[in-house]
Amino acid sequence: MKISVGVQAVIILNNMLLTIEKVEDDGDVCYILPGGKQEFGETLEQALRREVYEEVGINVEVQELLFLREFISANHIIAEAHSKLHIVSPIFYCRMNPDDVIPQVAPHPDPGQLGVEWIDVHDLFSLRFYPIELVLQLIEIASGNRTMPCYVGDMN
């Protein structure tokens, strides 16, 4: 199998994080950062702008790289169902125009996508949010304390 690149966006307004609400394989609802796979010939920035537009319906300005995350499925609980995934995810801070209105239906939602949810960063621990390991850093970012770009390793 090949390693794929899956870009993700951190979009925060007034302590609220923009997330994608989706149904997991087990039928439970989870929340993830907007984003998706980079296509051949795209820069990371182009891929992220395209993915956010497809899933959310807004244009974003890609800012700095916050985190570099890996997901190696064989190391996680989903290994039985998805044993061949290895995704490298650059996670960027993005800005949206505060006057933009998120449409009720995304232009090209992912399979299993239920919608878009603004979630208070302090509530992320009580939800099935991925990657949960980043919540403390997301709270810091929401409070105005930017982290340095960092490799955060293999996390679910």
Rank of each mutant, 00 (worst) to 15 (best):
L114R: 13
P107H: 06
E70Q: 14
E64V: 09
T19I: 08
E24H: 07
L18E: 02
V52A: 09
G57Q: 02
M16F: 02
R49C: 13
L134A: 13
L85W: 12
S143E: 15
D110F: 03
V116P: 08
G36W: 04
W118T: 08
Y93I: 07
L138S: 02
Q63V: 01
T19R: 04
E80V: 09
Y93N: 08
V10G: 09
E80R: 11
I58A: 05
I12W: 11
L44A: 02
G115D: 09
Q8N: 10
N75P: 03
A74P: 00
I32G: 06
G144P: 06
R146D: 06
Q38K: 15
S73N: 04
F67S: 03
G35H: 07
G112K: 05
F71K: 05
V152H: 04
I77F: 14
P131W: 00
E61C: 02
P107E: 07
I12T: 10
P90H: 02
G144L: 05
E61H: 09
H86I: 05
I87M: 09
M1F: 11
L136G: 13
V60P: 08
K22G: 14
L13W: 09
L85M: 15
H108Y: 15
L65S: 01
R146Q: 12
I119M: 14
Q46A: 09
V29F: 07
Q38T: 15
P109S: 01
G112I: 03
C30P: 00
R50G: 01
